[in-house]
């Protein structure tokens, strides 16, 4: 009886170990070897129209376009890219545990994040913007927000900025921006606020054509960087070179026009950015 139990326990432990091994295999980075034939795992958002959106087997958006270009410069064809969903709260962990090689996911470069990962880029400079109904001219920028109702995502940087610096603004927070949209469209919310790129992505969606617009100039600076393993300056420099080439070739501008252009989106001041030195 006792031995039977021990065998069962050993078997289940072995099973658990082999499963752990499997998941590690799947996450082995291809970055160290590089070159054609290998795979590269790239983390993107799956739910951000205009930036990183998964629909069936197709991936669209600015982050995806930049990622494809950079991957090509690193020697990976489009078929060698394995996409992986990277929700905001998991990005550092995904990099630290080698589950992804690079992350292009509206990933703002900040000092606290730099303590855990390294950044290449920036490849785009976004800023906090305001999305309003197309027929609403009462909001023209950050100075006209008094008494208005704004919507954003729980705990996000733009939501915190509104709560801290605009005490006379009423802020509704939801789990995702998608939940803000119906309230904005029926007039019970006056504006959605977050990075202007994300807002342009929503405004560019077919079902909102002509109904929404971006109001005013962006009033913060968010440097979108490429997240990678901390201290990997070699990879970082390769990515930076690819970004610089993409801007010089014009592929950068056409990627923006393709993904966010439908909303008449014009990249804000500071664009195209010059990648910062790797460290």
């Amino acid at each position: 009886m006792f031995t039977k139990k021990m065998i069962a326990i050993a078997a289940s432990a072995g099973l658990a170990l082999s499963m752990a091994a499997c998941s590690q295999d799947a996450g082995t980075p291809a970055a160290d070897g590089g070159g054609a034939g290998d795979k590269i795992t790239i983390g993107i958002k799956y739910d951000q129209p205009g930036l990183g959106l998964k629909e069936g087997d197709t991936y669209t958006g600015l982050d995806v376009e930049v990622a494809k270009y950079v991957a090509k410069e690193l020697g990976y064809e489009e078929g060698d890219i394995e996409w992986k969903e990277s929700p905001s709260a998991q990005r550092e962990t995904l990099i630290e545990t080698d589950q992804v090689d690079l992350i292009f996911a509206t990933y703002s470069i900040t000092d606290s994040r730099k303590e855990r990962v390294s950044f290449a880029g920036p490849y785009f400079i976004a800023g906090q913007g305001l999305l309003v109904r197309a027929d609403d001219n009462s909001i023209t920028g950050q100075d006209t927000l008094g008494g208005k109702k704004l919507c954003s995502v729980t705990g996000s940087t733009p939501a915190q900025k509104i709560a801290d610096q605009y005490p006379d603004v009423e802020l509704q927070e939801f789990g995702t921006y998608s939940e803000c949209l119906p309230a904005l469209l029926n007039g019970t919310i006056d504006a959605i606020t977050t990075d202007d790129t994300i807002l342009a992505g929503y405004a560019a969606q077919e079902q909102y054509a002509g109904k929404l617009k971006l109001a005013g100039e962006p009033f913060t600076t968010e440097n979108y960087g490429v997240g990678l393993k901390k201290g990997d300056t070699e990879l970082c420099e390769k990515v930076n070179a690819a970004i610089t080439k993409m801007v010089d070739e014009g592929a950068w501008q056409s990627a923006i026009d393709e993904t966010l252009g439908a909303a008449d989106y014009v990249a804000g001041p500071g664009n195209p950015p010059t990648p910062a030195a790797c460290s």
Partner: peptide, 22 residues
């Protein structure tokens, strides 16, 4: 309730993860 904007524990946790990394 964090996803409808009530400032309870999970909402503050999201703020901390956003600012300090999870």
């Amino acid at each position: 309730a964090a996803i409808i904007g009530v400032k309870e524990a999970a909402a503050i946790m999201r703020v901390i993860i956003e600012n300090e990394t999870g």
